[in-house]
Amino acid sequence: MRVPPKVTQAIAVALFGGATVLTLAVLVFVIVFVLGKGLPVVSLDFLLQSPREMGKAGGIFPTLVGTFLLPLVAVAIAFPLGVGTSVYLTEYTVESRMTGVIRFGTDCLAGIPSIIFGLFGYIFFVEILQMGWCILSGGLTLAIMVLPTIIRTSEEAIKAVPTSYREVSFSLGATRWETVLKVVLPTALPGIVTGVMLSIGRSIGETAAVIFTAGASLRLPDSLFDSVRTMAVHFYILAREGISIENAYGTAAILIIAVLLVNAVSYGLMNRFIARRTK
C-alpha cells in the first residue's frame, strides 16, 4: 500500500526534527555536564596556584601559562606563512598547475590526524633538531597543524575584497605590494583574524600533537626551550591516570570556557565581517 505524501511528510519532520533536537541536546549536555561538575571546583586559588602531588591538590596555574604560550607561538609562526600563502595565491599568481599543487598540499595537510603531527614533531623538532620537549617544538608542530586553517580563511577573506578597490589603488600609482598592504589586507582583516582565532581554539584543545612535542612539565617555563603542560594535556593526564577526578573536572571547565570564548569571538568577528560585506 502506498503511504500518502502527507503522512511521509509528517514522519520526515518528526524524524529529522527529533534528530536535530537530539544532536543539540547531546552537545549541550556535554557542556552543561562539564561546567556543572567543574565550576564548583574552580576558585581563584585553583587558577593561581601551582599543582601539588602531580595535580592531586593545588591549582593549575602553570598549565594556564602553557595553554596561553603554545597557541601564541603557533600563531606567531603560522600567521605570516598562512597569510603570505593566501596573498600569493590570490594576488600574485593566476590559477595554474602550481597553485593546484599548493592547494592540494594544503587540503591534505588539513586532513592529517593530530597524532601524526605529534609523531613528526617528536622525531623532527624534539630529536633531529635536538630542541627537546619544549614550547618551541610544540609551537612549531601546532603551527604546521593550523596552517591550512589560516590559509583557507585568509584566502576566503582576501577573495571577498572587491576588485574595484585594487583597481583604484593601482590607478593611483600603487605597486602590487602597496595595494596588498594598504587596501587588501586591512579590508580582509576581520576574516583573517577569524581564521587565527579558530586556530587558537584548535591549539588550546589539542592533546596528541602537544604531549609528544611540548612534553608535560608542571614547572613554570623560563624560556621557549622549556617544557610546558597545557590544560588539555593536564586534564588528559589527571583523568586517564585517575589522579584527581575533581581537579580534572575543574580543568575541563576552564578548558571549555577558554575554547568556547575564543570560538565565540571568532564567529562574532566573522558575522560582523559578513554583515559589512553585504551592506
Binding site: L24, V30, R202, F235, L260
Partner: peptide
C-alpha cells in the same frame, strides 16, 4: 543553530573522551 553547532566543534576531544 548552525553557529552553535560549529561552536561545539571546538570542544576538545579529550573532554568527549572523558564524558
Amino acid at each position: 543553530t548552525k553557529p552553535t553547532i560549529e561552536l561545539l566543534a571546538g570542544i576538545p576531544s579529550v573532554v568527549y573522551g572523558f564524558i
